[in-house]
Design a protein around this nucleic acid. Sequence first.
DNA 1: TTCGATGTTCGACGAACATCGAATTACGAA
DNA 2: TTCGTAATTCGATGTTCGTCGAACATCGAA
Lengths: 131, 131
Amino acid sequence: MAPREQEHPALNDVELVTVLSALAEPTRLRIVRMLAAMEGERAWKDIDLPIAQSTLSHHLKILRNAGLVQNRTEGTRCFISLRDAELEGRFPGLLESVLACRDAAVIRAAEESESRRDHGGTEDSSVPAAP
Amino acid sequence: MAPREQEHPALNDVELVTVLSALAEPTRLRIVRMLAAMEGERAWKDIDLPIAQSTLSHHLKILRNAGLVQNRTEGTRCFISLRDAELEGRFPGLLESVLACRDAAVIRAAEESESRRDHGGTEDSSVPAAP
DNA sequence: TTCGATGTTCGACGAACATCGAATTACGAA
DNA sequence: TTCGTAATTCGATGTTCGTCGAACATCGAA
């Protein structure tokens, strides 16, 4: 990392609204999903998203203050991980339900391929399908 | 109600981030809790919060667009209710975990009364204890 | 110590948001 | 029709938020 050691709040001091606010942003939700998908830590540098470093640092700080992630410093680099076990104690079921949720875009795509199978049309696949 | 009929989105078209954003605001979270605490509908006018009518209307619109609540019009007044069953289908466990969560302030108060019992002090019960 | 790599902090900017009061729409009752 | 009540919309205001580049702090290695 760089300057001073980070602060990690006790989860009992974290309000639900803080956690929901932290999760209510596409980039941060993506980071959380990324961390959840890999069981364990992830090197800071391996979080590659199309945003500036300072922006990533900003988002990680918000996730940290919300008690969602923690980071461990090792020499000059740091590793991020989800505080999933602790979160389960403070907000039972919350993280799980957030992670389990499917994108609306995915549901729409599934519905469409189903209806396409129904009346056999192959017309035009003009769905933007956000990345 | 007043102007035109309201729109209620199909829950499959609602993204998780939209729901989380809607819930990530103290006033709106309070409204959702209020609705959940009473099984059924609640008259618009009975939602009394220390905010202007126009602000309440604004918040209800956001909750509506997020698929969290629906309103039924009867003559000139309207009734609000949670779309809890539908939400459970689209976002399993999410609403439940949000509603089950205790305030950090409550946890702190409980911890304090416990430690007070431990070393017998009765000092000063200066916990604001939000209504 | 000097250098390079790694994150964080610091302004600064525009966009989005919460809030309000006033105007507006819709309906029932007099 | 006219009046009053109920809820939404509009316009304005101040605040918060996401984003960036530049400057800074911290550490390991040369």
